[in-house]
């Protein structure tokens, strides 16, 4: 029986390229006016009701283009792709930081995300206060947070720094604390976007062991982005391969990793041949 916790259907995300500058206030008013009267927006060249995404244009492009997949409880899914492929964008949409332009996503359970470098910590406040604040952000009650507090501090190895303002923490210490919070608080879905990169080698190993244990014992679901293939292959059974906003492949992680390398080699070849041509010219 399938126990789906994340269902993503035809999700597209459009971004603007370039700087907000002259004329945008005017353009925004134009679009606003058009939408108010249900007319066609003169500033959108994108076809929003077609099946296969749309044409980017007019300073806009699709960071995610018609992405669909489902994730079941207890799965660990690695998302791989080149820089700018749309991995972080996808995770930000799932974390409800940004909204998609198209599509539907449905989820069950609480979500704890560590998105890219930096955390939702308040720099002036101590680690202790920030643990409570993060628990509150997850919608937890005070006594629930208290129950996990000691475990969090111990795992993060922050020790006596727990009452020091976060702004005095090293970047690794921040990530340790953030990971520790994400791992210990009750969130059914954990989202990690390139977070382990800052931690030292030993802490990385510790985190991966912890995640494996959580996946096995507590039936949590993990979405994991990393450019370190060994970690992805170790942590995940399944892989999603994103390329320029398209979901190219959804398969067991080893197949996806192989395809990723294959594509990389090919693009290297073509890049090399282009270089040779331009050298010759």
């Amino acid at each position: 029986m399938k126990d789906i916790v994340i269902q993503v259907e035809h999700v597209s995300k459009m971004y603007r390229i370039g700087q907000l500058g002259h004329g945008t206030l005017q353009k925004d008013l134009q679009s606003f006016w058009a939408r108010l009267w249900k007319r066609e927006d003169p500033n959108t060249l994108l076809e929003m009701n077609g099946q296969g995404g749309g044409k980017p244009g007019n300073g806009r492009f699709l960071a995610l283009d018609d992405v669909s997949f489902e994730i079941c409880r207890g799965e660990s899914v690695g998302i791989i792709g080149r820089n700018g492929a749309g991995k972080s964008t996808l995770l930000k949409i799932l974390s409800r930081i940004v909204t998609p332009e198209k599509g539907l996503i449905r989820m069950r359970g609480r979500i704890s995300s560590l998105l890219e470098v930096g955390t939702g910590f308040h720099p002036e406040q101590s680690g202790r206060d920030n643990i409570y604040l993060n628990g509150g952000i997850l919608g937890m009650k005070r006594h629930e947070i208290k129950r996990y507090f000691d475990e969090i501090v111990e795992f993060s190895e922050i020790g006596e720094f727990i009452d020091t303002p976060i702004k005095r923490y090293s970047s690794g210490m921040k990530i340790r604390l953030a990971f520790s919070i994400a791992a210990h608080f009750l969130a059914e879905i954990v989202i990690l976007d390139e977070v382990l990169a800052v931690g030292d080698h030993f802490f990385q190993q510790k985190c991966m062991n912890k995640m494996e244990q959580l996946l096995k014992n507590e039936g949590r679901t993990l979405l994991f982005v990393s450019h370190s293939m060994p970690s992805v292959q170790r942590m995940c059974q399944r892989g999603l391969f994103l390329d320029h906003g398209h979901l190219l492949m959804d398969a067991p992680i080893n197949e996806v990793a192989a395809a990723y390398h294959q594509q990389h080699l090919q693009s290297n070849h073509s890049a090399a041949s282009i270089n040779q041509q331009s050298d010759a010219a």
């Binding site: 939408r35 409800r96 909204t99 198209k102 599509g103 539907l104 509150g136």
Partner: peptide
């Protein structure tokens, strides 16, 4: 039932007032 539904934003989506009650601890902390 699904806990979370994410759709493209409507022009004016209603605020989810009931969500506040789940987050009253956060309010105190803030």
């Amino acid at each position: 039932p699904w806990d979370i539904e994410i759709t493209p934003p409507k022009f004016l989506s209603p605020l989810k007032w009931n969500e506040f009650f789940r987050y009253k601890n956060l309010l105190g902390l803030l």
